[in-house]
Design a protein around this nucleic acid. Sequence first.
DNA 1: TCAAAAGTGTTGAACATACACCCATGT
DNA 2: ACATGGGTGTATGTTCAACACTTTTGA
Lengths: 233, 233
Amino acid sequence: MKADIPLAGVAVDLVILTVREDTLMALAIRRGIPPFKGQWALPGGFVLPDEDLTAAARRELAEETGLADFRAHLEQLATYGTPGRDPRGRVISVAYLALAPDLPLPSAGSDAAAAQWMPVDAMAGELAFDHPQILADAVERARAKLEYTPLAAAFCAETFTIAELRHVYQVVWGVELDPRNFHRKVTSTRGFVIPADGTTTRDGGRPAQLFSVGPGDVLRPPLMRPGTVGDDR
Amino acid sequence: MKADIPLAGVAVDLVILTVREDTLMALAIRRGIPPFKGQWALPGGFVLPDEDLTAAARRELAEETGLADFRAHLEQLATYGTPGRDPRGRVISVAYLALAPDLPLPSAGSDAAAAQWMPVDAMAGELAFDHPQILADAVERARAKLEYTPLAAAFCAETFTIAELRHVYQVVWGVELDPRNFHRKVTSTRGFVIPADGTTTRDGGRPAQLFSVGPGDVLRPPLMRPGTVGDDR
DNA sequence: TCAAAAGTGTTGAACATACACCCATGT
DNA sequence: ACATGGGTGTATGTTCAACACTTTTGA
């Protein structure tokens, strides 16, 4: 490397979102090493010298969730590099957004004394570095992408009912959606969900058809948005 | 900086888009220094030791376009850091997307032998580094954002007619839009455009009302999309 | 038999497209 | 006068929110 190129540390930080107990939650790590030792932060770490950025994010995701065969959506969110954001010196952080189904309990990573799911609304005040900003950007991105992509299924298990999918929207957006109109909209949008084998009664009532995400892309996804409150029960 | 943190060079690269001669174009720089000396590349450069990422992008934008009082939209696009993408060593590049009105001719920057606007469709094959990928991502982002934001006006001058705004959509998307329905949609969406003083006949025909972008945000932008071909003339 | 959730039908309102038509200017 | 583009009115079709109603299970 030429000597006249200014250098910086490069890290990845992850906002891992899940829907759990009717709440949108993110994974927080209690830092086991300085700086900010003992405080909460987003999971993350430095990119290895010959590691791709996405590979680093995937590695951290696997380490923090204990999930080797993770089925989770992962996308780059944004990059944060304001001078002074890390007391160790100039550190550029490439933030990634992950959407995961309701996982078992995460195992503590190597440099973390503890890891736990926290409601995103209660989390901002707890986080070190500029992680409150990163979290806010991530939640905004996730909320927006539910509108114009079939991404909500990333919060669900391999197969899911339409009601479970609707529940994701309701929790992430904090709105009520009409079960009947939602059902129609989702099932009539080609490629959004495809019927899977079997039904389930895990939600109570009449057995519900199971679905999985389609292999291909959705041509023009639904655009859900707020909508409904009332019902006729 | 601690010794165990792997370091990398941090650059910003810009995709500066404009609508010019009925074509979506981007600014290309002929490299004046190695690597890839003499080839075309996106404008960009290394981030200074105590410079914010956005400040570096703004600085490059001003340098390359010669525009000190630039009125252009600038947003972070994505970050590219695959090992080996730069022969000088590990270089992370934070790409920015800029949308600019049809500017005069750009002035050559300090490390550039030449700069010129090129049609984005003819550009991919010319660019060095991984810049074809960055350009493709930028164009995709720009096309998508026209759908759900009032960003098209960033391609127009301070004040513009509805026809000029429509022209932006037509060029960027490569579609025909019905002038009358477009006019209604844009003017009836509160906050999308606001009437400015005066009219112009620069497009010929009846004088057209001038508009400028509103100060606030648009609550729920239009969602334009393909649409119309026929007419009754 | 009843509660609870799945899923279908139907209706009126909102919106979008297509196009007829009038307006105001330059030549 | 007439060509050119700006802008309004309006009919028809599509989509969407609201909600009545039937289906299928567990308790």
